[in-house]
């Protein structure tokens, strides 16, 4: 039986390249991405695929699993990465259609970066909210390498401290986003006594967030050892399902996000978590979550980057929930 059901790809017509790593092949046409492996094929709308790929690349494969949808994704083992089709979906594994291959992180990253560069057309910013960018459709037409290579702010201690990651401003290319035009831009008043100038530090955290030019892409603004405040602004849908390998916390700063929670191994729906301003919620280490933000909102993602956690993940002793009561 011929099981190759992938539609005909004609790169001479579309101008796109196909990409291959191990037994995986990636193709695109005007509307879709196609992922092929020895057990079959999977297709995704190209805009959703590029938005997911943008996060996987920008986050260095992130913590745990980046699921592009219920079928295709990557799982980070920190130095090497699984690429899978169907491995975290109950029906695919039951049918033994799932396929997984492991790659060195840097080799996979090279392929994904090249793919993202070739497949992203001029005018489409996969980091941007849908209302703030063009579309991903059509034949190969230029690139947006400048946008897709932008770096997030990563503070060593706190943004705005001299020598640390800078604050955002009109002058350095971060105007206030259209959805946050009403956010107060005043800065804290610092009254230092003589001799202590430069020793007291504060800034307007919400104003910093109001100037984010991307969605679903955390920066790091303050650090207590390995405790990382990673705020981000969210609009429309998180382009991936994030399957964490450790507990993660969300603190909703403004507006609302509705999180769909699924089982991390089977993709079965588990719960819906609706978060409004001031709400705090843990995300257990055995689930996948995907957020939906009807209006651009501010979210504080709180991560623990401890090497101790890496060891616990390897040992299988990492806590699934942060506290019990």
């Amino acid at each position: 039986m011929n099981t190759n059901l992938k539609p005909t790809i004609d790169n001479t017509q579309t101008g796109y390249e196909s990409f291959k790593i191990g037994n995986f092949t990636f193709d695109r046409d005007e509307y879709f991405a196609y992922i092929s492996c020895p057990n079959g094929e999977h297709m995704m709308s190209i805009d959703a695929f590029l938005r997911a790929m943008m996060r996987d690349v920008a986050w260095g494969f992130f913590y745990g699993t980046v699921a592009f949808d219920d079928v295709f994704g990557t799982t980070n083992h920190y130095g090497n990465v699984d690429v899978f089709i169907g491995s975290q979906h109950a029906e695919w594994t039951k049918a033994e259609r799932d396929y997984l291959e492991n790659f060195k992180s840097d080799e996979l990253m090279d392929v994904f970066k090249a793919l993202l560069s070739d497949w992203t057309n001029e005018g489409f910013d996969p980091f941007a909210a849908p209302q703030e960018t063009g579309n991903a459709w059509g034949r190969n037409n230029g690139n947006e390498d400048k946008l897709i290579s932008r770096q997030r702010e990563v503070a060593k201690r706190m943004v705005g401290i001299p020598g640390d990651a800078p604050l955002r401003s009109d002058e350095n290319g971060y105007p206030v986003n259209r959805a946050f035009a009403d956010v107060d831009q005043s800065q804290p008043v610092i009254e230092a006594e003589p001799g202590f100038e430069g020793e007291l530090h504060a800034y307007n955290f919400f104003a910093f967030l109001s100037r984010s030019d991307v969605t679903w892409n955390p920066s790091i603004v303050s650090v207590v050892r390995q405790s990382l405040f990673c705020p981000t602004t969210e609009e429309y849908i998180l382009p991936i399902d994030h399957g964490n390998d450790r507990v993660e916390w969300f603190i909703q700063i403004s507006d609302e996000i509705v999180w769909d929670i699924k089982d991390g191994k089977t993709s079965a729906p588990l719960a819906t978590v609706t978060m409004r301003a001031g709400d705090v919620s843990a995300q257990p280490a055995d689930i996948r979550h995907q957020g939906q933000s009807p209006k651009r909102s501010m979210l504080l993602v709180w991560e623990n980057g401890s090497p101790e956690i890496m060891d616990m993940i390897k040992d299988g002793t990492v806590p699934i929930v942060p506290v019990t009561f």
Binding site: A268, L270, A271, V273, T274, D279, S281, V321, P322
Partner: peptide, 21 residues
Amino acid sequence: YRKGGVHCLNEDPKRYVFSNL
């Protein structure tokens, strides 16, 4: 303030340690 919440299908809401600042 107006809290959100957790709607569970097959899950213990306590796992989400949900509160409001």
